[in-house]
């Protein structure tokens, strides 16, 4: 579905170096990136801010022309066959709207139907499915400007699916959404991928998105691919530690001697302790049980390494 080989993209950047002097230099935002996405896959494309994610997405969707390299999306060259590509893929930008701000949601859908020349029957079927699964019926007739972010996002996703794309590209789809909206959206996308076979490619900062949706992860930083594989594998490989944070009823001495704990940080005079443990040496459940034998636990939470943390470790490892 997606075929990327040695993809490069350079930008000329001018910086003001003196009061009047400016220097131009070339920055490589994407530096020989290669990966493939097969039909029906769901892939997370992650990396810290400025890593080159958006630039890659823009090249995959035909907005930007690559400086060099080879791209095929859905069988066509995005930069040459932009219009043809737009009929085959759907794109959702978390921070840009494709809806008409002052019109009811339904009117936006109707306009998109005309723009993509979707047949009446197909349109009705797809819209019905989305309305049902994303629960749009309550606000279909409300102007987009009056929708909450979560409602708008559901509208955006629907808008990008009306022409029945075989690939859906999502750039930060869950950014800024509340937990419930995030969850609903993830559920919908997972269903779209598994039952309808729509290929998904999404960029995100939210590890939960990846965990719920993407069996596979492509990690990019400073324009190059750092890793490509299943999330669990990557995490076990580069970030085998998790952190158990316990709030105790009474202050206690640091619990660093428990089996499997490799580091401990104590706060509030021992009332809250951050216990870092290796997942290959113990489990969260075993550790919680061990803590309970030593002190009365008031509250606890298990923290996974943040995606930025995973990337940082991947980067440091090179």
């Amino acid at each position: 579905m997606i075929e990327v080989r040695e993809l490069c993209r350079e930008f000329a950047v001018t910086t003001r170096t003196g009061r009047f002097r400016r220097t131009r230099r070339t920055v490589r935002a994407v530096d020989s990136v290669s990966f493939d996405v097969a039909a029906g896959e769901a892939v997370g494309y992650v990396g810290p801010n400025g890593a080159g994610k958006s630039t890659t997405i823009k090249m995959l969707t035909g907005i930007l022309v690559p400086t060099s390299g080879h791209v095929r999306v859905s069988g066509v060259d995005p930069s040459r066959s932009r219009r043809e590509l737009t009929r085959r893929i759907g794109v959702v930008f978390g921070q840009r709207s494709q809806l008409w701000w002052d019109l009811p949601l339904r009117d936006s859908f109707d306009l998109l139907r005309a723009i993509y020349r979707v047949g009446a029957a197909d349109y009705a079927r797809r819209l019905r499915e989305c309305v049902e699964l994303l629960e749009l019926s309550g606000f279909l007739d409300r102007p987009v400007r009056q929708l909450s972010l979560g409602q708008r996002m559901r509208g955006e996703v629907t808008a990008s699916l009306l022409h029945g794309p075989e690939l859906l590209v999502l750039d930060e789809p869950t950014i800024g959404l509340d937990l419930e909206s995030k969850e609903r959206l993830r559920e919908f996308l997972a269903d779209l991928n598994t039952t309808r076979g729509t290929t998904l490619l999404l960029t995100t900062h939210d590890l939960d998105d990846i965990e719920r949706l993407c069996p596979r992860l492509v990690v990019i930083d400073r324009g190059t691919v750092l890793a490509d594989g299943p999330l669990e594998e990557l995490r076990a490989e580069v970030a085998p530690e998790r952190v158990l944070v316990v709030d105790l009823e009474k202050p206690a001495d640091p619990l660093g001697d428990l089996a499997g704990v490799v580091a401990v940080r104590s706060e509030l005079g021992g009332l809250r302790q951050h216990l870092t443990f290796r997942r290959d040496e113990t489990t969260a459940a075993a550790l919680i049980a061990a803590v309970a034998t030593r002190a009365e636990v008031h509250d606890l939470v298990v923290e996974e390494p943040e995606i930025d943390d995973v990337v940082r470790r991947l980067y440091a490892r090179r």
């Binding site: 823009k58 969707t61 035909g62 907005i63 932009r82 219009r83 043809e84 737009t86 009929r87 794109v91 930008f93 921070q95 840009r96 709207s97 494709q98 723009i115 993509y116």
Partner: peptide
């Protein structure tokens, strides 16, 4: 500036 132009590029027109 706002990226609205990119959205236009994503349509078959």
């Amino acid at each position: 500036r706002t990226g609205k132009f990119d959205v236009l590029l994503l349509r078959p027109l």
